[in-house]
Design a protein around this nucleic acid. Structure first.
Lengths: 235, 235
DNA sequence: CAGTTGGGATGACAGTTGTTCACTGACACC
DNA sequence: GGTGTCAGTGAACAACTGTCATCCCAACTG
């Protein structure tokens, strides 16, 4: 009798607002209700973590605090993650996963310079708008207290910079550029795109006025960098 | 008999490597051994905090952990700070205090563009070299979990950007520039100087090779921005 | 020289924390 | 249909946390 009620209580707390989100991961194939349930609680831990991390940093997030939020016994946490920094790394992957989608949109289209800049700023704004908790987490932990998480973020950003560098190298404006210079330009761009995203972060909640102001500044900054790029080989 | 030993033990732990550091604050005037002692323990708390914060973030630093390090009773902490974020704000002021000195050195001298850039990068490198714990703290907490500290850092950086903007406005290259454009350039510079400092942070310990490499990249990035600046009004 | 002040020590308070353990019962597989 | 696997449980652990009222005694004031 007790087992039933407790199971139901767990079902309720673990499932709400999750069933749809993971269904596409499971696919149409029967993956076994067992593993599906495990994935669902794992996702519930990640979601609750992201929620709690909106107003604190990972190093101050308690294991019990998290499991309490999900409605799982403290010990259950260890079935999914070795420790808190393990969960943090998983959150990093999740965050950059959703980012990568949006980036591909930009990489694909070839347009003239100003359109690229406008599109870039718009994609950054949209990413922050639609994934604010994710990016807030990234910004907090990029130089935060948990080493493995810091390294995971650094790796993702390095990867991002490398992709951008190869994109830049393929452009006609890069003729005569050394690989090192292209890389330093890519780093400059990546750093500033992160700064732009952070600027959106602090102001965005339903305030289209200042969001547009930030976007305006961001566009001009990117344009200035592009201007410097186009005169790099002038002597 | 017990009181003596405990007092001595406290004296020892609170004073080491501190007596010289605060002497210039106390001045030559007799300030009262009473208040001098208070200042000394306050400073000891700040120093120990900075030491402990080298490998963790402020939100995870415990009050007892800190007082234990200093050799002071836990309750004694409240004589000097209301709470941890109060100490954090004090550390922010301390950090930017030492930075401000070095910045004035750059602001004063007028030289040609490349020399300014080289000097800037050198000053950043020196600041990180000589005040690594301070800057590590700033980098960690700039977007960290403690709101008052975050705001204190943001205020200091805004002040810094405003000073830089007024410097830029006074330069002949800024003729025809709108105040908004000058401000956006100043923000761009400040953000990147912070990024440069962070880059120095991760690599500096007795590795002149990679320090010089970072400096090289930083110089080229700043030069590219300056190039963009000088063509901003080209049409 | 007394009296007051206040920096600091003390010890206990009531919670909280991360981690481990044996255990259970629903699922998956043969 | 029986059996092993394993996600999740709940209790117990020791260590830790911030906060408080209280006392001590050196340092200041008059």
């Amino acid at each position: 009798m007790f087992t039933d009620t407790s199971t139901l209580a767990w079902r309720k707390s673990a499932n709400d607002c999750l069933l749809d989100d993971v269904s596409h991961i499971l696919g149409d194939r029967p993956l076994g209700a067992r593993q599906a349930q495990k994935l669902r609680t794992r996702q519930a831990l990640l979601d609750a973590g992201l929620r709690l991390l909106e107003h604190q940093s990972l190093s101050s997030l308690g294991l019990r605090e998290l499991t309490r939020e999900v409605g799982v016994a403290p010990a259950g946490f260890y079935r999914h993650f070795r420790d808190m920094s393990d969960l943090g790394v998983a959150l990093v992957e999740e965050s950059f996963g959703s980012l990568r989608e949006m980036v591909r949109a930009i990489r694909g289209e070839q347009a003239k310079a100003d359109e690229v800049i406008d599109g870039t700023v718009e994609v950054i704004a949209r990413y922050v708008r639609e994934h604010r908790p994710h990016f807030r987490f990234i910004a907090r932990e990029r130089y935060g207290g948990v080493q493995p998480v810091r390294e995971a973020i650094a790796d993702e950003l390095r990867l991002f910079a490398e992709e951008l560098a190869s994109d830049l190298a393929a452009q006609p404006e890069s003729e005569g550029w050394s690989p090192q210079d292209i890389r330093m330009l890519a780093d400059l761009y990546v750093d500033h795109m992160v700064m732009i995203a952070i600027a959106f972060l602090d102001v965005s909640p339903e305030d289209p006025g200042s969001e547009e102001e930030i976007a305006n500044i961001a566009r001009r900054q990117l344009r200035l960098i592009r201007l410097g790029r186009s005169h790099w080989l002038d002597d």
